[in-house]
Design a protein around this nucleic acid. Structure first.
Length: 149
DNA sequence: GCCAACGTTGGC
DNA sequence: GCCAACGTTGGC
């Protein structure tokens, strides 16, 4: 799950313990939040658009299944969507819980070097989704990298 | 700041 | 439904 660290970082999540993962405004990503995420699922936290600090930074778990993203109804919020309504909400959010911050960032450049990660949507050309599935094998391998880099 | 690659909007 | 224009994402 991607977030720009200047917006919301792993350290923000660490401080809060639990947080609303809001602002997803892409249908494909929304469908994954809504249809595929269950309480207890594990997720990697990815810092996007972070200059030299772009990459995977930690782990979290899904603490609450998808429900309507409250920010879509807040007129002055940057995630406000005038086309959405409480009766017919368009966007959903989940709650995430902090698990761990890696001792150091796993840079995107390193992920790209690993042949066994080549199938990850994150590394596919042109992919801009902020929510992506990964296999258990990929997940475990990345957490291994976190401990060995 | 640049720009490729998308996604969305809206005229027709 | 087509498609041009525009907006966004996100790596570099």
């Amino acid at each position: 799950m991607k977030s720009e660290p200047q917006e919301f970082s792993i350290h923000d999540l660490q401080r809060k313990g639990k947080a609303l993962w809001d602002g997803v405004r892409n249908y494909q990503a929304r469908n994954m939040l809504r249809d595929e995420m269950r309480v207890g699922d594990r997720a990697l936290f990815y810092h996007s658009n972070a200059g030299g600090e772009t990459g995977v930074v930690g782990e979290m778990t899904i603490a609450n299944a998808a429900y309507p993203d409250p920010t879509q109804f807040q007129i002055h919020h940057k995630y406000f969507d005038p086309k959405s309504s409480p009766e017919n909400p368009r966007w959903v959010a989940v709650d995430v819980a902090f698990e761990k911050a890696f001792p150091r960032l796993i840079p995107l450049s390193l992920l790209k070097q690993k042949k066994r990660l080549a199938g990850m949507p994150l590394l596919k050309r042109g992919n801009r989704l902020s929510i992506m599935k990964l296999t258990k094998t990929e997940y475990d391998y990345i957490t291994t990298l976190a401990n060995s880099v």
